[in-house]
Each structure stands twice: as structure tokens, then as C-alpha cells.
Design a protein around this nucleic acid. Structure first.
Lengths: 199, 199
DNA sequence: GTCTATACAGCGATAGAC
DNA sequence: GTCTATCGCTGTATAGAC
């Protein structure tokens, strides 16, 4: 999932800059691994100023995941609009992940999934929504691919969607400790191959 | 990965009890999500006493991941000793994951992988070693399965090993926010099916 | 909208008595 | 090996001036 920001121009409004920095820190260090002090230092304001825009850390976290999910939805809609072929749609989907990983980031959903038990309740619900949206889109694409003959996965559409989502999120998760982005690309390709005609 | 403890009997020595509690907290809340105070309260001692056994939190964290990796190695050796068939070995491997998940825990490796950028350097290296050990074992099992005809995965043995590892870790990661352990089981089964004869 | 100043809780860690 | 006591720091959050 890219969508780190459409254009991280310095002239962005302060709330957006806060969201950008908070999102990057959440994707690299986790929700429990960053503080208002980190964000403030990077934006160039004082901690207290952040509270004017996002009253609590929980509110900031919720805003970040909400924007992230919305941007993913936009990205998926763009893929649908630009790619008629199901297999090509999935390739573009995996490229979203590659984009994030090459920035040294983890998918925000994956990071928050790991921390799920420590998150404020609204964020927990948002994480769940995020994965459900991804699964729903993938399932629809796979269904389409099966009907046109572009894809022939084993098992149900829902199962194939989940295998792909879990495989990509897991590959991203593991790529960073292994310091092996190339391995992620290979794994992503193998996952797509598994959905192919001979799958 | 189970190995939460061979026997969590209450009469265990204090260092072991500390390790047990710390491990469970690390698997449920993450390294950045628990404190000495949490462990001390649960063990029934004071924070200062923990420092007598593990001088720093980093040392405690390193001890937990080292023990975890060693126990996994034991579990894999047991599988090798007890199961000649490659496919059956993989089934037992996935059961290790199911055991952890049904305890409400995440694989320790997966949790620490998410937090990797915030961990003390020795822990980062240990996480990497953990995944390398898992991949090496899986690759050997898959190679054996291919040679006996029990398995016929697409791609190389290394690719198939990585797809399985990433798929299982990712499925575990996502199962908790989705509150869907059943979905994990289905996904694990689908991943194994993908390595089968028609794969 | 940003600042200074501050409150207050929690953190990891240490000293020294028992 | 465990305790009490405490240190220094960082965390989130608030009050009120500018």
C-alpha cells in the first residue's frame, strides 16, 4: 500500500504534514514506537501545537488509518478503471506493496495488526475494516479473473484472496528483518503465479 | 510456533517464570508494549528484582527470542524424527502456528519483525536468524517432498518455502484483527494445497 | 495557531538494607 | 534473591499568554 501521500510538498497544510509524519512513523516504528515529540521535532513545532490539530494520540492514530484506508480505496478504484484484465489488476496491486517496502515501510494495516491488542478501540475497528476492504476487492477481482479464464486458482475466490493478502503482508513483514526486498518481489511473483491457469 | 513453554508449572524457577511472562507479553503486546512493571506484577515480585535476573530489558528480550528459536528448532527436529512424509511434516508445522494463535498470541518472530526498527541490535539479528532457520527447514522438507513425489510445488524449493512461511505468518497476523481463527485454518490448508501434486 | 510552562504518570535502571 | 526508595527521563496532556 503506497499512498504515503499524493504529493508530500512542504507547503502542505499543518494537519496534513502531521498526518504524513505520523503515518511514516507508524509504518516504520509502530503506533507504540513513536511520540508527539518525534512528530513535533520533525514538523518543526512544539508538542503542544500538535494537540491543537489532533487532541489526543488516539485521535491522530485514527485519522491516519482512516486516511490510509481511503487512499487505498482510491488506488483500487483507479486500478479497476485502468485495467480490464484481472491478472493485470493483481500485478498492480502487488506494486502498491512494493512501493511501500522500498520506502523502508511496512503496510500500515500489517503494523497495526501486530499491535492490535494495545490499540484504542476505534483504531482496532479501523484495522479490521481495512483488511475487510482489501479482501473484498481481491475476491471480486479473482472472481472476475476466473469467469474470464484469466485466472484459475485452487479453492474458493475468498480463499484465494486471503492467501494472496496474507502472502503479501507476510512477505512484507519478513522482508525487513531479512533485509531482502528482492525476496519480496520473488515471493509476490510466486503468489501471483499460484493463481494462474495451472494453479 | 507454540513452545510457549514445555510445562508452565508454577514451581518453575524465577528466571523461567520471568521468561514465560515476558514471552507471552511480547507475543500479545509486542516488545514496545510491555514493561518490567507488567512482568513484576504478574510474577508477584518487585520491578527491581527482575533486574537481578535480567539486567536490562534488552537482555530479557534477547533471552526470550533465543529460547523461542531454540524451542522451535527442537520442535522441528521432533517433526523430522516422527514424520517421514514431507506433506505430513508440513501439516505438523502449520499446527505449531495454530497452537500459538488459539492462545491469542502472534508468532514472536512476526511480532518482532513488525517492530524491527525499534529493537536493540542483538534482537534484530536474532529475529533474522529465526526466519532463516524456518526457511532452511521448510526448504529442506519441500526438497524432500519433491524428490519423493509427495509434493510438486511451482517454482524453486526456496520460493515455495518462502510462500508458505509468509502465508502462515501473514495469516496469523491478520487473523487477530479479523477475529477469525477459522479463517487462519482455512488459509493454512489452502497454502498446503498449493504445494500439492497439482500445484 | 503557536508558544512556554507545567502537571502527572510511567518508564528503565540503580543503590543499599535485609 | 528480594525488598524500599529513588533517580532521571520520556510519555501524553493541559493552562494560559501571545
Amino acid at each position: 500500500m503506497d499512498t504515503s501521500s499524493t504529493k508530500p510538498r512542504r507547503s502542505a497544510r499543518t494537519p496534513d504534514r502531521i498526518l504524513d509524519v505520523a503515518q511514516r512513523l507508524m509504518q516504520t516504528r509502530g503506533y507504540n514506537g513513536f511520540s508527539y515529540a518525534d512528530v513535533a521535532a520533525e514538523i518543526g513545532v512544539r508538542k503542544a501545537s500538535l494537540h491543537h490539530h489532533f487532541s489526543t494520540k488516539a485521535a491522530l492514530g485514527a485519522a491516519v488509518i482512516a486516511r490510509y484506508t481511503a487512499r487505498i480505496a482510491e488506488a483500487l478504484a483507479e486500478i479497476d478503471a485502468g485495467e480490464p484484465d484481472a491478472a493485470a489488476r493483481l500485478v498492480r496491486y502487488t506494486r502498491l506493496y512494493t512501493g511501500v517496502l522500498t520506502q523502508g515501510r511496512l503496510c500500515l494495516g500489517a503494523m497495526l495488526a501486530a499491535e492490535i491488542g494495545t490499540l484504542p478501540q476505534p483504531m482496532q475497528a479501523a484495522v479490521r475494516k481495512f483488511f475487510q476492504a482489501n479482501l473484498a476487492w481481491l475476491e471480486a477481482v479473482i472472481e472476475r479473473g476466473r469467469s474470464t479464464g484469466a485466472l484459475a486458482p485452487q479453492g474458493t475466490d475468498a480463499e484465494a484472496a486471503r492467501v494472496l493478502l496474507c502472502g503479501l503482508e507476510g512477505a512484507m513483514l519478513i522482508a525487513r528483518p531479512l533485509k531482502d526486498i528482492k525476496g519480496f518481489r520473488v515471493t509476490a511473483r510466486a503468489l501471483l503465479a499460484g493463481l494462474g491457469r495451472r494453479g
